[in-house]
Design a protein around this nucleic acid. Structure first.
Lengths: 196, 196
DNA sequence: TACGTATGAATGAACG
DNA sequence: CGTTCATTCATACGTA
């Protein structure tokens, strides 16, 4: 017998259409109640669960962001190359990628034009990284989280009651996820616990 | 590079087993010393840090609770639906399989919920940490249970202030947040949307 | 047959 | 603690 049933939810065209329309309308991360309603609506067109809606939005948003990120990194690469090339010529202004009216913070955000906001949000992040490119080198994360170590080291009971060690101000607010391309798909450490 | 800068902990099966066992045994929020011990023990089976254990319990508990919440909200929703249905006494709409619906339910009401987003932010105080199953003693673990027993004994012994050795399930948490995650790998029929 | 893509699902990490 | 993000896994479909 062939593979068992697909196990996973498969959106019907109608469901997909509605979902995309909602996404285009600005819904990115519906909260619990929204998900409930959406699920209720979509259940009319086929079997669907809350988690499906949840995952759908999560994935859609994430992948949208992914594309954007890649594009931007490309652009930055190109720009850097250009800068490098024009090094002698003293290229004055690093032109912003795509000028978007990065303003709208209106409560009617859910109605239209949300991608812009998200894009800008992401953009600024990447911008900071890209501009401050610095030495990427071993970008194995500056994860020097001593908080746990510190907390657990030594006395476990005499932790001063009132304060978490105030966050040492970061030099860069960008947590620098590395923004590496997923092309390389380094599956070196494949922790596939595939009990599947 | 043999080891990619994955930076991300990936639990080995043994580690996962132990963690789950401990979780089932009732450990939900290990304190610093417990985390330390757990980490120490698990480090035998692979690289692991305190924060990994910490995050693991955080996530596991959170997602467990999400599931519970979702179930409960669904029940509530169903109840509501039943009430409404009874009230309306209208026949349930049969889902149109193949053809497009006469008209798409435009999710208009869903679009203007920006204000409603914060609607359900209150309520919800009680938590239900469903600890149902106790460890199935001597099930599949050959490890020295000494340390674990000791730790858990310490757990039950150290349980300080007010709370329970084992949390009991709340009947009706007046909360409807999160219905997002769900874990039940529900086997459903394969979907063939392809025009194959 | 082998690879590339699209996407549902899962989870480690982190934020607010 | 609940929520969100980033990454990865697993699988179906398409193509050379």
């Amino acid at each position: 017998m062939p593979q068992a049933p697909s196990t996973r939810w498969c959106p019907t065209p109608e469901q997909l259409m509605i979902l995309e329309e909602m996404y285009r309308s600005g819904i990115r991360t519906p909260n619990a109640s929204q998900i409930q309603q959406i699920t209720a609506h979509l259940s009319y067109y086929g079997k669907i669960e809350g988690k499906n809606v949840f995952y759908w939005f999560q994935n859609h948003k994430a992948r949208d962001r992914q594309k954007l990120r890649r594009r931007l990194s490309r652009h930055h690469q190109l720009l850097h190359q250009q800068l490098h090339t024009l090094d002698e010529a003293s290229a004055p202004p690093p032109p912003p990628p795509s000028c978007l009216p990065h303003y709208l913070h209106t409560p009617s955000q859910l109605l239209h034009q949300d991608a812009n906001q998200q894009a800008m949000n992401l953009l600024s992040k990447l911008e900071a990284e890209g501009i401050s490119e610095m030495a990427t080198t071993s970008s194995s994360m500056n994860y020097n989280n001593d908080w746990m170590t510190m907390m657990m080291a030594g006395n476990t009971g005499i932790i001063p009651p009132c304060c978490k060690p105030l966050e040492t101000l970061d030099l860069f607010p960008t947590k620098s996820t590395g923004l590496r391309d997923e092309c390389s798909t380094s599956k070196s450490s494949s922790c596939s616990t595939s009990t599947n």
